[in-house]
Write a protein that binds this DNA or RNA. Structure first.
Length: 432
RNA sequence: GGUGAGGUUCCCGAGUGGCCAAAGGGAUCAGACUGUAAAUCUGACGCGUAAGCUUCGGUGGUUCGAAUCCACCCCUCACCA
């Protein structure tokens, strides 16, 4: 590769801030660097908000550097106050410990543990913090921090300056804990670089300073940009909630659909952030899309690349199979086996016991199946004839007619009902 | 410990005795238009097919009637000590 890693990252727009660019560039060129990025357990799975840092670790590894994925068994117990408007509730330690185990597995999927000298490692900061004595902490670590500097950090400013906000000592200490992580990893693993989201800048620089003071070593920090959408809404959320990396929480199909629905204004930027396609390849795609009128290819490429990264070839194949079937408009081409496969591939599905629900209105049946959060929305769709069962549109008239709608003679292959609510929500009912 | 400000439906935020299931904005959902896009327009947005039912930190109370008044409690925040 003629281009350096930093040049590539910058071309992708993946660098928000870094400590002394020239020195970091030089440091990275001098051989394999050990770097780390922390992931705090705040839920039982990572979501796509963590994707950029994870992929960046992988990018570093591809350039021969050694990534450490740090799972915040300790910091997760405290809660990062950075740019958070208010104090957060503490999670109890057994919960956090359970999440730590899940996150370990997830982060492991991205980086290689079997590539020689720069094989990745997963570390847990609970290992080096849980037995630190409070007096040791205050005298050996705390002494290096100036409260004046800490309160001046942009990341906690709004909590300190703003009326109606506040910050507990617990959360205020978070920065010290994270700084300590960097110092410890520098001592134990020779780690010299920390990466993280741009909200982590304050915590990262805290770590570089602590390492310099305690270990006498110069270490570096680099932050990644916050992913924004052109329409100003929050990235990574949809009507059905957060997009998780765990296939059990967000199916490969739903994941694929999420990316497919990326706005034009964002898609080329996202290709640079979330795929390993080279910048020039991405520019070519953009050019081709511009020349060809109509639907751009970029969304499809983005969805394929990301789904493959997270869920593998199989997950991608499943996602595409469902997408083909549902959006081609031609479900008649599907065989009986195809229907059985759809449910397995992650198309939302459920078993319908017509005897049990014969008296229920469709609003109840469909909302309980998870097609809509409440009956009201099903009702709204019914009033607009936007509920399609095996190709037949239904309106309010059929609301109390579950028996007729789901009559055995209408079932495909004697047992399948493919229900479509609106343009994008599909659900497969199987006759009991 | 003292003083002050607060806790409203997913979020922000109006509402200070009946006209309040509760303004407005955001987010979200559906329809039209489209490219499973954006923008725009329309409708929905506590629960319920409906009749109706349950909400405004909690518990009691005043009242024909309370998100609104009173008492106590819980929680958050700010300032002071």
């Amino acid at each position: 590769m003629s281009e350096t890693l930093l040049q590539d990252l910058k071309a992708r727009g993946l660098v928000a801030q870094m400590t002394s660019e020239e020195e970091l560039e030089k440091h990275l060129s001098e051989g394999s660097v050990t770097l780390y990025c922390g992931f705090d357990p705040t839920a039982d799975s990572l979501h796509i908000g963590s994707l950029v840092p994870l992929l960046t670790l992988k990018r570093f590894q591809e350039y021969g550097h050694k990534p450490l994925a740090l799972v915040g068994g300790a910091t997760g117990l405290i809660g990062d106050p950075s740019f958070k408007a208010q104090e957060r509730k503490l999670n109890d330690d057994s919960t956090v410990a359970g999440w730590v185990e899940k996150l370990k597995k997830q982060v492991s999927a991205f980086i290689s543990f079997d590539c020689g000298d720069n094989s990745a490692e997963v570390v847990n900061n609970l290992d080096w913090t849980q037995n630190v004595n409070i007096l040791t902490f205050l005298r050996d670590i705390g002494k290096h921090f100036s409260v004046n500097q800490m309160i001046a950090k942009e990341s906690v400013k709004q909590r300190i300056d703003r009326e109606g906000a506040g910050i507990s000592y617990t959360e205020f200490t978070y920065m010290i804990l994270q700084s300590y992580d960097f110092q410890q990893l520098n001592a134990s693993h020779g780690c010299t670089l920390q990466i993280g989201g741009s909200d982590q800048w304050g915590n990262i620089t805290g770590g570089t300073e602590l390492t310099r003071r305690m270990n006498g070593n110069q270490v570096f920090g680099l932050t990644l940009p916050l992913i924004t959408k052109s329409d100003g809404t929050k990235f990574g959320k949809t009507e059905s909630g957060t997009i998780w990396l765990d296939a059990a929480k967000t199916s490969p199909y739903a994941f694929y659909q999420f990316w497919l629905q990326t706005a034009d204004a964002d898609v080329y930027r996202f290709l640079k952030y979330f795929t390993f396609l080279s910048v020039s390849e991405i520019e070519q795609i953009e050019k081709d899309d511009a020349e060809r009128q109509g639907r751009p290819e970029a969304q499809r490429v983005l969805a394929e690349e990301t789904t493959r990264l997270i869920h593998g070839e199989e997950g991608l194949a499943a996602a595409k199979r469902i997408t083909e079937a549902l959006f081609s408009g031609d479900t008649s081409s599907l065989s009986e086996q195809d229907y059985a496969q759809l449910a397995q591939d992650g198309l939302p599905s459920s078993v319908l016991d017509l005897d049990a629900v014969a008296d229920s209105p469709l609003t109840t049946i469909l909302s309980e199946a998870g097609m809509a959060p409440g009956g009201k929305q099903v009702k709204d769709a019914l009033q607009r004839n936007a509920v399609i069962v095996n190709g037949n549109a239904h309106g309010m008239d059929d609301n109390m007619n579950a028996t007729g709608v789901f009559a055995a003679e209408n079932a495909l292959f004697g047992k399948y009902f493919l229900v479509k609510l609106g343009k994008k929500k599909h659900h497969l009912f199987t006759n009991a």
